[in-house]
Amino acid sequence: MYRARDAVENEQWIAAIEEASERLDLGTETRSRAADLFLTNAPESDRSKRAVLAASVYVSALTTGERRSQSAVADATGVSRLAIQSRWKEILESAGFDAPDW
């Protein structure tokens, strides 16, 4: 879980989630879940935040039924598909879901 202060300290990243969600035409629930996932899993390093942001958007779309491909999310967030691949399962599990074995 995160604190309200975390949302304030990460305003630019939440804005980036909104921008990516707009590009991907994602709904309100998906956008909100992406922000929650990001804030719950946000690393200290700014360098890693972009990858966590992208994986959070991917997982939120996956869990709300608004599936988007890793490639589409990578393009919308400005990261490589590999960045999403390396993080999405841990974020999915942090949300209380079981990650697939494949």
Rank of each mutant, 00 (worst) to 15 (best):
R68L: 05
I14H: 03
W102P: 04
I84L: 10
S48F: 14
A83R: 06
E66Y: 12
A61L: 09
R3E: 09
N10K: 04
S48Y: 14
S21T: 14
A61K: 03
A72L: 11
A83S: 15
E19D: 09
D25G: 06
A15K: 15
R47W: 15
E22M: 06
E90C: 00
N41I: 09
V52N: 03
G65K: 10
L24T: 02
R87P: 02
R87L: 13
L24R: 03
M1F: 12
G65E: 10
N10G: 03
A4Q: 13
T28L: 06
Q70C: 09
L53I: 00
K49G: 07
D6M: 12
T63R: 04
A54M: 04
Y58N: 02
R33V: 09
L37R: 00
R33Y: 12
A15E: 13
E90I: 00
R3C: 09
G65V: 11
W13I: 01
K89P: 04
T30V: 06
G96F: 14
A4F: 11
E18A: 07
E66A: 07
S69N: 12
F97G: 07
T30K: 03
F97T: 00
A20P: 15
N41R: 07
S60K: 02
S45D: 12
M1Y: 12
R31V: 05
L39D: 04
D98G: 12
A51G: 10
R23L: 04
T77Y: 08
A15H: 12
W102N: 12
S56N: 05
K89F: 10
R31S: 11
G96L: 11
R33T: 13
S71Q: 15
N10S: 04
I17N: 02
Q12W: 13
E22S: 12
A55C: 05
S56C: 08
S94C: 10
R3D: 08
S94N: 14
A16W: 03
E22D: 07
A95I: 00
D75L: 13
V8C: 05
S71V: 12
I91S: 05
S60F: 04
S60T: 05
T77Q: 04
S48G: 13
A20D: 09
T40W: 06
N41C: 13
S56Q: 03
A35Q: 02
R33D: 08
S80L: 04
L82E: 13
A55K: 02
T30F: 04
S69A: 11
A16H: 05
R47F: 14
R50F: 07
A95E: 12
R87Q: 13
I91Q: 01
E90T: 11
A74Q: 08
E9Y: 12
E19P: 00
G27E: 11
R31T: 08
V79E: 08
D25W: 08
A7D: 02
F38T: 00
S32M: 07
V79H: 02
A42Y: 06
A51L: 01
S60Q: 04
S48V: 00
A34T: 00
E44V: 01
E22P: 00
I84W: 09
R87V: 06
Y58V: 01
V79I: 13
T77H: 09
E19W: 05
A99M: 15
E44I: 00
A20N: 09
S94E: 11
N41G: 11
A42E: 03
S69L: 06
E18Y: 08
Q12K: 15
G96Q: 13
A55G: 10
L37P: 02
